[in-house]
Amino acid sequence: MNPDSRVNLERVSILLLDSSALGMSILAQIFSGFGARNLYKCWTVAEAKSLLLENEVDLIVLNDEVAGEPGFEVVRWLRRLPRNTNSFASTILVSGHIKRAVVQRTRDCGANFLVSKPLSPRVMLERVLWVSREKRPFLETADYAGPDRRYHVAEGAENLGRRRTDLEQDVANAMTASGMTVTGTTDSRNTGA
């Protein structure tokens, strides 16, 4: 990250979801420090869902556990919402230690990025910038909806164009292996802006 480059979150609407007062303060201080002005603070899953149904949000940052409810369920719910402008909103899931029993479900929830605690402003800003450059297409299957996971995160968004040309063959191979059919489509949910 170039320290002299600029970051502009002034017009970005951000939903923060964390049920703990201190956890919410940490997220709010980080994003306020980055210059964000439009923070929606949600303390419960129900509050977040209600807000997402009624407001356009550009970035969602949520804890992996919200008052006893798994945060990843919010992402799964969001990605499956029919005809909602936020269905494919950029989403960063923040997690502490994840139990073995839920690691897979957490990784497969459809978030753009999983960030481990302890948070640091540097790591969070790097992830926000990465997500803002995200070009991965979204996939919907019977058991997954979210960014195409076959892109390697470490490669960075600048390499996605090169790999996109490889993708169709990847999908064809995967289809052949698993007996699936592919429908290419453009969905208006992802053009809500």
Partner: peptide, 21 residues
């Protein structure tokens, strides 16, 4: 089962563009 592709229109990128910050 069916796999559906949806092109990524990155609204965050759009919101972060422009002067300021």
């Amino acid at each position: 089962s069916e796999v559906r592709y949806i092109p990524n229109v990155n609204r965050l990128a759009k919101a972060m563009s422009g002067p300021g910050g």
